[in-house]
């Protein structure tokens, strides 16, 4: 039976991809000379991402990640 922490793998991959693309965007932006508005947009992106991830981490702190992902125990006592 798959444990619940399995769903963290695709999440980490996608979230990592988003953050990497954000980093590449930031490098591209400053390669061509960023000004205050570029700094503001960059700050909003990273601050927003940090806030979203912080709240997710806060909410998911009490989860039992070792529990099974799909609980089939409801079928074990079925009788016909």
């Amino acid at each position: 039976m798959l444990p619940l922490y399995i769903i963290l793998i695709p999440f980490a991959l996608f979230a990592g991809g988003v953050l990497l693309y954000g980093l590449l965007t930031m490098i591209s932006l400053y390669n061509f000379g960023g000004d205050f508005s570029a700094f503001l947009a960059t700050f909003l992106f990273w601050a927003g991402a940090a806030t979203v991830l912080f709240f997710a981490w806060n909410e998911l702190g009490g989860v039992d990640w070792n529990q099974p992902l799909l609980n089939f125990s409801i079928f074990s006592s079925a009788s016909f």
């Binding site: 979230a15 988003v18 927003g48 979203v52």
Partner: peptide, 9 residues
Amino acid sequence: TLYDLFVLL
């Protein structure tokens, strides 16, 4: 969370 990150991007 993924959806929010994607919209920010």
